[in-house]
Every structure is written in structure tokens, then in C-alpha cells.
Nucleic acid binder design. Structure first.
Lengths: 245, 245
DNA sequence: CGACATTTTGAGTCAGCTCAATCAGTGTGG
DNA sequence: CCACACTGATTGAGCTGACTCAAAATGTCG
């Protein structure tokens, strides 16, 4: 409904590094946005597609994923409101992965020309979008380290730390508790684990008194302990200093 | 020595998607470049640093990596001549990982202002650099899928497929054989495996007649078999069509 | 109250790990 | 030319973290 509000989320994100001039912010807020509602578990864009628009997550939780030959899924990233997870489609012809919803979600579609016209007219806007994609790459690197070199409990803790930090940064958490609308299967697919193993290790983390996870809600009981287990250092998220918990 | 030749490699890469106008290409070829020679196994830039220049790999093999708490290393990407692996330092203040050489290497340093001045003056150059970082992100995603969801033999095969494809794209391989100046330890660190297991599975791949690996040289004996084992589909590299093997 | 998705638990298996040698290649100094 | 040192590759012997399969328990929601 309130398109400008959704674009505000985008602008806030783009201004993480430095504020934009009034005119450029206004131009962004005036981007054409076609809202569409999705169920949970639906694909927004599929591997192989060539799109002419990009999508702004407005409400809900969205993820990238790939399916390998034997049917296993790897979730590659999570996207919260304010993200444009397929901004890369501006410059790279073809989707090499899928983009889907994890919860019911509202997604706003913005034509490529509209964005391209802004990035070509205002280098600050181009740099802000570019920077966002660089931060995303930085998150990929951190996930790769986790999947490649950390134990299951450490990975789980790391996901919790990252998730609540990002939720806090966009005002959807107080830093202690937040919605966590992910099934254990989905978390496992993001961490490169099996669901069963994920469940067992999560129980240990719970029993160690680090977090409470109940009916789609995550509550941090021992932030320091969780960070230590996760080896979590939020630098890789490249947030504004004040956004850290 | 031949700075312009090194910059040619960069230009060729930037023109993967579409050729640049004469003037813009000339500007790129005139970028100031300070060459520096490194031994193998040296750090070029370290985690936490804030740099005022970015580095163009000119000769040799360079990698990104992180070290986790217990001392294990995860190699995050490999960079061949023509790459600017820390172009992100233009827009993201702080290095969140290390950049180091795997072989003796020549690296050219370019001041940030010089690059920024070009990207701000010519949107095509900005988009070409941006696109390169997007392709890199795409490679991260593919590696993440491998580490998270593929077996050790499949991951090893995938690395071979990717490496020779990239070497071929820059003219350092005929598509059948190329230098592979990586120790088994280093390959293991890139794939999230232990050195010992890597060695054993590599032997199986060799014995299956898929590749020959001897004294820093990789030779493909059965490209189709290797691709099948790896589930390798070069789309994620977003190369020019003609560059594919 | 069902019907369905999700979580939890147990049991057994296995891919990948660690530890510990050994072997091979390369370079160095005498 | 040989002894020695060093790095990297290879092999064997357990060990274990994570996996699969199967079933039961618990939520969730129309």
C-alpha cells in the first residue's frame, strides 16, 4: 500500500555509507513500484530467466537458493525489507540461481530502465547500489567460511547473530528478540547441514542457555556467549556504526 | 615491465559484456600503475586495513582468504592476471579478509582517485567494474553450493573445471591443459576439505581417468566425465559465449 | 476435531577428519 | 657427487561429526 514507505527502506539502506543529496533521495522515492503479493515458498525469479525489472523486498523474508543434482537445496542468502536481491540483473543478463519467498511477502517490481536511468545520472546512487552488492559479497564470504570451516553449532549461532543484527539495523528488532520465520529445515539448508543434525545441535545451544527459539521467535539469552561460539564479528556486514547491537 | 599490457588484460575483462568506446578504453590504459613483485605466500592486503589504492593482478596467482579461530584457513577466491580483487575497497572502507599470493606474483597498484575519477566520468566504466564484482559474487554463490552440498570428489572436479575455463578465457590455456600452481593443501583450503581427504579423493579422480595432475600442471583427459562429476555449468562465470571451451 | 507441517528422538552408517609415518622432489652447502 | 633439510604428496589406522532412515511427538490452523 504505502509505496513510498517501502522505498524509504531502500533509501535508508543506500545511505548506510553516506547521506544522499536531497534531489537524489527524492528521485529514488519516486521510482515506479508495482507491488505484488506472494505466498510463502513461491519463486519470484527462477534460474535461467532474463528479467526487465528488479524486485524490492517490501515485507516478508526472501532468499536466494540453488538446487543441486540430487535435489538438495543450498540457501545462499536471506533478504529483509529494503533489499533488492536481484539488482545484479541490471548488468548480468541471466539469473544463475532462484529467488523465492520464505514467508508470505510483498515484493515491489521496479523496471530496469528506471533504475539504470538514475544510476547513470547520479554517480552517488550508482555507487550506493554498487556498495550494497559489495556488502552482499562480503556476507557470502563470511557464509563460505562458516560452511567450509566452522562446526555446526558455530554456524547456527552465527546465523542467529547475523539475523538479529540485520533485523535490528532495519528497526525490526530491539537487539534481544525478533521474529525468525524460518523452519529448521530452511536454516539447515542455509548452513549446509541436514535437518536432523541441525535440530540436535540447536537443542544443545538452547540447553546451554544461549538462545530461546519458539514458534518463529528468536530471543538472545546470552549475547556474549553466542558471539563467542559463532566467532561473530559484525564488521563484515559493513553497517553504520550505530546500528551494531 | 609492460604496464600497458597488464592494463590490456583488465580492459579485456571489462569488455566481456560489451566493448567500450575508444576514449574510455584509452583512459583505462593510461591508468597509473605501480608494479610490485611478491614472493609466493605473501600478504598483499590484510584484514582490517584501509587502503588508498587497489591492486591489479598482473602475473601470478592471488587469493582471498580468512583464518578462523582454530587456525584453519578458508580460501575464498582465486584471482588470475587481469583481476582487481580489491576493487571493493573503493566503496567499502575496511578489508574484511586477506589478500595474498599463492605463487610469486607481480601486482600493479592503482590509486583509488584514479579509478574513481574514471568510474564517475564514464558510466560504462563504472558499470563494467560493477559487473565484474557481480560476477565475482556469482562465483561465491557457486562455491557456497559446492562446499555446502557437494561431495569432495565433485568439489575437486568443479575447481578443475572452473580453473581451466578461466585460464582459457584469458589465453593461458588451450582448454585441455594449464598450469595449476596450487598445492593440495591450498586446494583443500579452497574447498573446505582436509589435505589428507583431498589427496585421497584426488587420487580416485586421477584413477578414474578424468585428469592428470603432475608438478603444477593440470591436464583434462575426460572433459565430459569431469563436468558430470562436478555438475559444472559455466553459466555462472558469465563469460563471453566464445570463451567457453 | 482432523490434516498437515514441523520438530524431536533413536539407531545405525559413512564421509571426512586427525594423527602419524613414509615417500618423493628440490635445493643447498661442502 | 653426496648428505642434509625442507616442502609437498601419499598412505594407513582409527575416530567422529554429520548423515540417513524411521518413527513418534508436537504444533498449527481451517
Amino acid at each position: 500500500m504505502d509505496k513510498e514507505q517501502y522505498l524509504q527502506g531502500l533509501v535508508r539502506k543506500l545511505e548506510t555509507s553516506s547521506p544522499l543529496p536531497f534531489e537524489e533521495r527524492e528521485q529514488l522515492l519516486r521510482l515506479p513500484l508495482t507491488l505484488k503479493r506472494f505466498e510463502g515458498g513461491q519463486d519470484i525469479v527462477s534460474e535461467g530467466e532474463r528479467t526487465k525489472q528488479c524486485c524490492l523486498v517490501s515485507e516478508g523474508l526472501v532468499c536466494r537458493y540453488k538446487i543441486v543434482g540430487d535435489g538438495q537445496r543450498q540457501i545462499l542468502s536471506l533478504h529483509l525489507p529494503g533489499d533488492i536481491p536481484d539488482i545484479h540483473s541490471l548488468l548480468v543478463e541471466q539469473m544463475d540461481h532462484n529467488l523465492g519467498t520464505l514467508t508470505p511477502a510483498t515484493v515491489g517490481f521496479i523496471p530496469h530502465e528506471a533504475v539504470k536511468s538514475l544510476t547513470r545520472s547520479y554517480y552517488r546512487i550508482a555507487e550506493a547500489f554498487w556498495r550494497e552488492t559489495l556488502v552482499e559479497a562480503s556476507i557470502y564470504r563470511e557464509w563460505m567460511v562458516g560452511i567450509g570451516r566452522r562446526s555446526a553449532p558455530s554456524r547456527i549461532a552465527h546465523l542467529f547473530c547475523e539475523f538479529i543484527t540485520k533485523m535490528t539495523a532495519i528497526g525490526l528488532s530491539d537487539g534481544v528478540t525478533c521474529e525468525l520465520p524460518l523452519t529448521q529445515s530452511e536454516i539447515a539448508d542455509a548452513l549446509g547441514l541436514s535437518t536432523v543434525h541441525m535440530n540436535k545441535k540447536l537443542r544443545e545451544i538452547r540447553q546451554a542457555g544461549l538462545v530461546r527459539v519458539r514458534s518463529s521467535r528468536l530471543t538472545i539469552l546470552d549475547w556474549n556467549g553466542l558471539c563467542e561460539l559463532a566467532e561473530f564479528d559484525p564488521d563484515y556486514l559493513h553497517l553504520r556504526r550505530s546500528s551494531k547491537i
